[in-house]
């Protein structure tokens, strides 16, 4: 018999202490990426081989800047969550688990930052 209350058990959020958080955000970013990624791939079709000025002009439109930022944030977040699960399933040595998880997080954060800075730089027009 457990003396813990139901509420206490739920608030403990399981062994990972984050409950459904990972699962939910993975689905949330997946749902966001369906229209965003489809839009981006379609939009790329009209930018193939286009000169620099055309690409800059396209990205600097405010609504495109916003969509591009939303895309890269959802994308790097989603890939971090996905790769995290793959590593949890297939990497068994604890030290390697920590190193690879840190590596994936580092890549996701730096990648997202690099993309955000590039998009904003193009959009604001520092060039």
């Amino acid at each position: 018999m457990s003396l813990r209350s139901e509420l206490g058990r739920v608030k403990g959020l399981g062994s990972a202490k984050q409950g459904l958080g990972h699962w939910r955000v993975q689905r949330l970013t997946a749902v966001a990426l369906v229209p965003l990624a489809l839009w981006f791939v379609t939009a790329l079709m009209s930018l193939i081989g286009a000169p620099h000025a055309a690409v800059v002009a396209w990205i600097s439109q405010p609504h495109i800047t916003v969509l591009m930022l939303a895309l890269v944030i959802a994308l790097f977040w989603h890939l971090q969550l996905g790769l995290q699960t793959v590593l949890e399933d297939y990497v068994h040595a604890p030290w390697l688990q920590i190193i690879t998880q840190l590596g994936v997080r580092g890549f996701a954060v730096l990648g997202a930052l690099a993309a955000i800075v590039s998009i904003l730089k193009i959009s604001v027009g520092v060039n």
């Binding site: 000169p51 620099h52 000025a53 690409v55 800059v56 990205i59 890269v72 690099a114 993309a115 800075v117 590039s118 998009i119 730089k121 193009i122 060039n127």
Partner: peptide
């Protein structure tokens, strides 16, 4: 993205 941000 980064090359587009780095000029023509």
């Amino acid at each position: 993205l980064m090359s587009a941000a780095s000029g023509a």
